[in-house]
Design a protein around this nucleic acid. Structure first.
Lengths: 256, 256
DNA sequence: ACAAAAGTGTTATAACTACACCCATGA
DNA sequence: TCATGGGTGTAGTTATAACACTTTTGT
């Protein structure tokens, strides 16, 4: 590396942006906040903020996640899912185009969070308002708010690209890991887990084969003991996430 | 996000570090350069450097790659492999622990490059000397230079972690993509491609099943027309990388 | 002739797809 | 009694692992 004279390198701002995904009403949704100031004033954006001087990148992402949602980042080393409001959090990718922010050079380290369905987004910190929006709407040409009572604009900055990358990461990662359980509450049924896969992938899965597959994969699910009938029909067994993180063989999404 | 007052955020330096991998003499090797100044003076490190003020992250990584090796980053949108010295280049991950550099806050966006076997590393730019070292040696406890005529020290900074992450990315990515061909010259035999897989994964593969698998995957390999006998034995057909980037079904590495 | 590497055939097993069928509840 | 979702059985298909065998060169 070159010498470390502070004048020898250009000034950078480093931020973290969050792709927070959840499944609500059979749809994959992302958390977006409305910008209160220029540029892109009034437009929707991913939550995020500056990394502090003494803070690791993952710590900054966890802090922003808690500020925006009240969720706690789940320790990847923990053997069991965190009790209460735990969410999966991992680094996604870094975006540093010199013109991605019109005012200054900002490098953003995007993170991906997967959360169970929450009561309501909490507009904390410096976010003026927040909402869960279906990613399908956010990534369509007009930003999914094409009706007269909403903003017809796509996401601010390069956040549409970041969101698309985060969604693709989530879609591929639930194939070979047990991460889909991060979208579920602590106890859930096989049918609820299947509806998570169907919402994230946007496909319909065979309930019979899905049931055999997930219950037959060692370590994926462990019985929680009870049953529930909240979906109607025959009562279903309740499960918790097992200790396995990697699925072998994987859950492959249908090709066509 | 918070206001963009320049005094409101701490000063960051942003660098790119490169994990450049190749296969030499049946071993997966990484490019390392010897540091000429403190800290870690005399120790081996990954090549890298500062991102310039008007430069995208991928452009900075491509520039460093060319400076250190003479390789050109291959356009991912290109349909055919670049003629001549083309290498695969992709973003790996970003490392930003506040104490990863003892002197200042440096956030490093690591990139992964996969290159065919090159004549010799070229110590260009500010690198005083450069070499290809087996990753197995670099990642062992003593840095793989435990003999009296070499440095018994592991890699500088957190570069051992970055290298380990890059190697794991390469190992998993050749499973489901055609990236293993990036380690091969423009024309190569099935046996040469198999030795790439064996070196990267550190396992022995069945030559018969491997041959059937890769030649049967549509778009992976296209015949180049000739044969070669440079490996001894019966002449082998020469192939080029086909247009396919994703392998379906994947090449799975043996479990045990 | 022999070694070495390329390439083909065959068989057993594992995993997936598709779908018939039964089970247990609420309305 | 019927609709709804939960759960099991089974047959056909695809992919893989293991290994016998033939082919084509250099020495």
């Amino acid at each position: 590396m070159s010498p470390y004279d502070p004048s020898a390198y250009p000034p950078f701002a480093v931020t973290v942006d969050l792709v927070v995904l959840t499944v609500r009403r059979h749809a994959l949704c992302a958390l977006v906040v409305r910008r209160g100031e220029p540029p892109f004033q009034g437009r929707w954006a991913l939550p995020g903020g500056f990394v502090r001087g003494d803070e690791d990148l993952s710590a900054a992402a966890a802090r922003e996640l808690t500020e925006e949602t009240g969720l706690c980042a789940q320790d990847p080393a923990a053997t069991a899912p965190a009790p209460g409001n735990g969410a999966h959090l991992e680094q996604l990718a870094t975006y540093g185009d010199p013109r991605r922010d019109p005012r200054m050079r900002v490098v953003s380290v995007a993170h991906l969070a997967l959360a169970p369905d929450l009561p309501a987004p909490r507009a904390g910190g410096d976010a003026h308002s927040a909402r869960w929006a279906p990613v399908e709407d956010l990534l369509s040409q007009d930003g999914g708010f094409g009706r007269e009572d909403e903003q017809p604009a796509p996401l601010a900055f390069d956040h549409a690209q970041i969101l698309a990358d985060g969604v693709e990461r989530a879609r591929s990662k639930i194939e070979y890991s047990s991460l889909a359980t991060a979208f579920c509450p602590a106890e859930f049924t096989v049918g609820e887990l299947r509806r998570v896969y169907e919402a994230v992938w946007g496909v319909a899965l065979d309930p019979r084969n899905f049931h055999r597959k997930v219950t037959g994969t060692p370590g994926f699910l462990v019985p929680a003991g009870g049953t529930t009938t909240r979906q109607g029909g025959r009562p279903a067994q309740l499960f918790r996430a097992g200790g396995a993180t990697l699925l072998n063989p994987p859950m492959l999404r249908p090709e066509v």
